[in-house]
């Protein structure tokens, strides 16, 4: 079981944009697989007919009136940008495919 999961974790790393196939991450993968193994005890809990809780408690949703406020000035938006050009965030060229 743990073996299969390690291979899957390499795929996961790709999804999460983390490095794969380096020695350090192999250890990470093994540790994650180990944790999953110990967390698998949950599978034995009888949850038939139990609703999942995505929230800790029932909270009445509060909505916001459709009133625009002043946006951030452009220089504040770009203030922390590692790279910028022409008022935009600059990233490596996106190649579709």
């Amino acid at each position: 079981m743990a073996e299969i999961e390690i291979r899957e974790l390499a795929e996961l790393a790709k999804l999460a944009r983390l490095r794969q196939a380096t020695s350090g991450s192999k250890r990470t993968s093994e540790e994650v697989a180990g944790l999953l193994k110990s967390f698998a005890m949950l599978q034995d809990v009888n949850t038939e007919g139990v609703e999942p809780s995505a929230y800790p408690m029932t909270i009445a949703a509060r909505l916001r009136p459709d009133e625009p406020t002043k946006p951030l000035p452009q220089d504040q938006v770009l203030r922390n940008a590692p790279r910028q050009r022409a008022g935009c965030f600059l990233v490596p060229r996106v190649i579709e495919g």
Partner: peptide, 29 residues
């Protein structure tokens, strides 16, 4: 809560929320 209309100078209709800054939260319009 930032205003939106198409067009405009880039990055001038952005609040901390859509900028995805650490700590921001969404609230439904």
């Amino acid at each position: 809560p930032s205003p939106y209309a198409s067009g405009g100078e880039p990055n001038t209709r952005v609040s901390v929320v859509e900028l995805g800054l650490p700590g921001v939260l969404p609230v439904v319009n």
